[in-house]
């Protein structure tokens, strides 16, 4: 058998193999997982969260709590800064990709720090790092418990609610590490804000 013919034959074998693999792995396998997903519809469809039967988002996808111009709405707990599109755009996930020596990043952090210190009436040095930095996905659904606690006074004042009540609510929404050491303690901002709205009689 000539080597050229052997080589051509290899390509023919490869082509047939690729077609079969494509059907089995590209269609069969995801279809099987999709079928299993029917048994866990909440997870398969993105863990939706509803208020009064209406979906307002996903517990896994962070949201902005800002006005049209991007200004923080004081009556809501704020999510982290986001580099996804104009902020929490799930059609354009991603981080800022600014290096730590980037001047752009440094000045953004300074601006955020000043803005939060002013709106929340706190010492700039006490603001936790997650409040000042954009996440990797731009869709981080959570903030650190420290950042949530830091916002209590502002939120309570904006809604004329007792500060202790709001503080209590935050503590209820603090999720610890699983098994005590996996992941980090967090507060889910959307879930916290939904509970906050339910608490507020003026809402």
């Amino acid at each position: 058998m000539s080597s050229a013919r052997g080589t051509t034959r290899q390509y023919w074998v490869a082509l047939k193999a690729m077609v079969v693999f494509t059907v089995v792995l590209g269609i069969g396998y995801p279809a099987l997982i999709g079928a299993i997903g029917l048994l866990a519809p909440a997870q398969a469809n993105g863990s939706p969260v509803a208020v009064d039967g209406k979906t307002v988002g996903s517990s896994l996808i962070g949201q902005s709590f800002t006005n049209r111009a991007g200004g923080a709405l004081p009556q809501w707990f704020q999510s982290r800064p986001s580099a996804a599109g104009t902020g929490y755009d799930a059609g354009a996930s991603g981080g800022s990709n600014q290096g730590t020596e980037s001047g752009t990043l440094a000045s953004a952090i300074k601006d955020r720090k000043a803005a939060i210190a002013k709106s929340d009436g706190v010492d700039p040095a006490s603001i936790p790092p997650d409040a000042l930095t954009a996440s990797a996905s731009g869709l981080d659904p959570q903030i650190s418990p420290e950042y949530a606690r830091e916002q209590v006074a502002r939120v309570a004042a904006a809604r004329s609610l007792p500060r202790a009540l709001v503080a209590q609510l935050v503590e209820r929404f603090v999720t610890g590490r699983s098994l005590g050491f996996i992941g980090e303690p967090t507060v889910n901002v959307l879930e916290l804000n939904i509970a906050l709205a339910a608490l507020d009689p003026s809402n």
Binding site: R80, T100, A106, P128, P129, L132, T133, S135, Q142
Partner: peptide, 11 residues
């Protein structure tokens, strides 16, 4: 400045 290397990291 931020008090920790959290830029580009998830909470």
């Amino acid at each position: 400045l931020a008090g920790g290397a959290m830029e580009g990291k998830e909470t």
